[in-house]
Structures are given as C-alpha cells and as structure tokens.
C-alpha cells in the first residue's frame, strides 16, 4: 500500500473515532464526568442496527453499495442509542448523590450492564451485517488506495452528521445554550437556561452520534459485544488530545488519532528504512512501532498530552 492508501484508510477510521469522540466530549463537559459507558453505547447502536436490518431487509434499491434498509437501520441505531442513554440518565445518573468521580465509577457499572445484556442476547461471537462485502473501487486501485463504496458512505455520513452538529451548535438556540452550559453551568442556570433539559439533549446528541459511530464500526470491521469497550480508550485519547469539553477539539483529536492509528504500518515501514544507530535501539524502535501497538501508541500520546498540554491542542474550552 502507498501513503495515499494508508491516508484513505485513516480517513475512514477517523470518521468513526470522530463520531465517538464528539459525544464523549459533550457529555464530559456538560454532564461533567468521564463516561466510561460511551463505548458500549456505540455497541448498542450497532446491535440495534443489526436487528433492524435483519428485520426489514434491503428495501429495494441501494446507494453507495448500501441498501436503503441499512440507512433505516442506521437511523434506528442512532435512536436506540439515544433512548438508552436518556433512560440511563433519568433512571441512574440523575437520582445519584455523588461527585463526578462517583459518576465515573457508576458509568463503569452501566458499561458492564450494557455489554452483558448484549452478550446474553447475541452471544460473544463476531457477527457482520448481512451486506455483501464490496471490492475496492477500481479507478483508485492504481494509486494504491483500496477503499470500497462502503468506506465512502461512512465518511460521507460522518461528514453530514458532523456538519449538522456544527450548524446546531452555532446557529440554533439549543446550541447556544449547550455552549453556555459547557462554559459555566452555574452561570447558564442563573441566566434562565433550563439546564436539565439541555443536559438531556446533550445525551441525545452524544449518544446518537456514538450510535452512528457504532453502526459504521460494525460495517468497517465486525460486530462483537466488546467492540465499543475496546475502542473506548482510543476515543478517550482523541478527546484528551483535542481538549476535553471542546467539540471542535474532539473532531480534530479524533481525526489525528484515527490517522495515526491507521498509519502505524506506514510509520513502521519508515522506521525499517531509517538508518538508526546503535543496532539495539533500532530493534527496540522497530519492535514498538508495529501494527500490534497501534492502540498503545494512541494511549501513550494521550498520557503525554495530559502531562504536557492538559487542555489539549485546541487549548481553549477545557473545564
């Protein structure tokens, strides 16, 4: 594969990470805790879409190699993830009388409950959507880019969703209230903003985007009950890189982390070619920059960012 090919893969994976990280960052800043159940919210979206797609089938035509039924399933996945998150907020988080650390610990319990329910219902094996895998787009193969129409659909849908969120945040009343709340919840409250309602909308948007990310992750790889939890730390890395609380930072962070993740094989080729001296150092570097450690590299970046620049690359907007 060429650099272009890796970049194209990175773009697809980044889209998924961005969808996940926006929701995590929104909830982090507005509900004020690190939500460890966010990854499993993605899983819920993916499995809800799986069930829906299995029930409704293709529904005739297809766009970008994806049947209409899949887009219906995507909408259902988003809706189910949002409903589950709002239900959890109403039933569990809202009545709790603990600080943000207590909420963090509770969210781990919630994550386990989500995952356990899915695993009991669907088993722990990998599954796929019942969609025929496509061949890479022919006209791009000479450039070393091996992306399918499905990948184009993932990137396109992510761009549409993120663009919609941008419009919502910048030009609507709800968006202004959300930004006010992320900035200073007490001040927002005394200005007459119904903070509870804004919080619920935050959950809807955050979990909805996570649900979409989960559906696309299932399309990009496979579905398994652990898919979301396994991605959670990568998403945290993206959020922290972008600066917690900053939605645009989360987009940038998600983009960078997704790219770095998929470009790891390319970096490892580069390191192979570099004349590193002495030899033992070369061996160590070559051993560590390899595809097995793609996630580990993201985690190390996360810790470094926390130490050096805790407000993230966006700088502003951190709580």
């Amino acid at each position: 594969m060429t650099v272009l090919g890796y970049l194209a893969n990175g773009l697809v994976f980044s889209s998924i990470i961005v969808l996940g990280s926006i929701g995590l960052s929104l909830v982090y800043s507005i509900a004020d805790f690190a939500n460890f159940a966010h990854g499993d919210t993605m899983t819920i979206g993916a499995y809800a879409a799986l069930v829906t797609f299995g029930a409704v089938g293709g529904l005739g035509g297809a766009v970008l190699g994806l049947p209409y039924g899949f887009f219906l399933a995507l909408v259902v996945g988003i809706a189910v993830a949002a409903v589950v998150a709002v239900g959890t907020e109403k039933l569990i988080y809202e009545p709790l009388d603990v600080d943000s650390i207590g909420l963090l610990i509770t969210s781990i319990g919630i994550a386990f409950i989500y995952r356990a329910v899915i695993q009991i219902r669907f088993g722990s094996d990998f599954t796929r959507f019942g969609i025929q895998p496509l061949r890479p787009i022919e006209s791009l193969v000479p450039y070393g880019v091996r992306v399918t129409l499905h990948d184009v659909a993932i990137v396109g849908s992510a761009v549409v969703l993120v663009g919609g969120l941008h419009v919502l945040l910048q030009y609507t009343d709800l968006g202004r209230k959300m930004r006010a709340m992320a900035d200073n919840p007490d001040l927002a409250r005394v200005s007459g903003i119904r903070t509870k309602r804004v919080k619920l909308w935050t959950w809807v948007i955050g979990a909805g985007l996570a649900g979409a990310g989960g559906v696309f992750l299932g399309l990009f790889n496979q579905l398994s009950p652990r898919m979301g939890f396994n991605l959670l730390l990568v998403i945290f890395a993206a959020v922290i890189l972008g600066g917690i609380g900053s939605v645009y930072g989360a987009m940038a962070g998600g983009f960078l982390i997704g790219m770095i993740n998929q470009l790891t094989p390319f970096f490892s080729n580069v390191v192979e070619a570099l004349p590193i001296w002495p030899g033992w150092l070369a061996a160590i570097v070559r051993g560590l920059i390899s595809i097995e450690y793609a996630n580990a590299i993201a985690f190390v970046i996360m810790v470094v960012v926390l130490l050096v620049r805790p407000n993230g690359i966006a700088g502003e907007g951190a709580t």
Binding site: G109, I113, V117
Partner: peptide
C-alpha cells in the same frame, strides 16, 4: 459482568 455492573450501580 451483569452482576458486577448491578453491584456497582
């Protein structure tokens, strides 16, 4: 996993 989650919550 379910029991652990329920106990935490």
């Amino acid at each position: 996993l379910l029991l652990i989650g329920v106990v935490i919550v």
